[in-house]
């Protein structure tokens, strides 16, 4: 899977305004909606929050991967948001989440989104890469971490 086919400058936001999980998800979803990738924004938000109820997607080291399966998209879509101050995302290590990788995928396919996240995780598993993301001043800086 090529990350450049999924990510583009319009799908990255370096200074997220939201201060809660709900606000962050809404803000990231707006990026996807603005890019015309979501058929039904309300449904996508609902499915995303339902998924969060099942299992929080805040992982560790400031990384969160909010994701859900939904009828609101036809193909895998993704966006990236950065909040250097951090937000409580009920992460596994209790630390505030600063890097958000959001994906939405259709019900029938789980693989593309798993493959996408696997590739993203390979990039941001090092402290150096995560620090570059958190300190990024521009969208281009964020994308450059992923070699884009």
């Amino acid at each position: 899977m090529k990350l450049k086919n999924i990510l583009s400058p319009t799908l990255v936001k370096v200074h997220l305004a939201g201060n809660t999980k709900q606000e962050i998800i809404k803000e990231l979803l707006d990026l996807l909606v603005a890019d015309g990738k979501v058929l039904d924004a309300d449904l996508a938000f609902h499915d995303m929050m339902e998924r969060e109820k099942t299992m929080s997607t805040g992982i560790q080291h400031g990384v969160a991967i909010p994701h859900a399966k939904t009828k609101a998209v036809k193909d895998l879509v993704a966006c990236i948001g950065i909040k250097p101050e951090g937000v409580d995302f009920q992460s596994l290590d209790g630390e505030p989440s600063k890097i958000f990788i959001m994906t939405l995928s259709p019900y029938d396919r789980v693989g593309p989104h798993v493959q996408f996240l696997a590739e993203i995780s390979m990039v941001i598993k090092t402290p150096h890469a995560r620090a570059r993301l958190i300190n990024a001043k521009s969208v281009e800086e964020v994308l450059s971490v992923f070699g884009l």
Binding site: R51, T54, M55, V110, G111, V114, Q115, L117, A118, S121, M122
Partner: peptide
């Protein structure tokens, strides 16, 4: 990574 994520998805379904 791929296997862990696939398993996580399955566990979400299990939940």
């Amino acid at each position: 990574q791929f296997v862990r994520l696939m398993l996580t998805e399955t566990l979400a379904e299990f939940q």
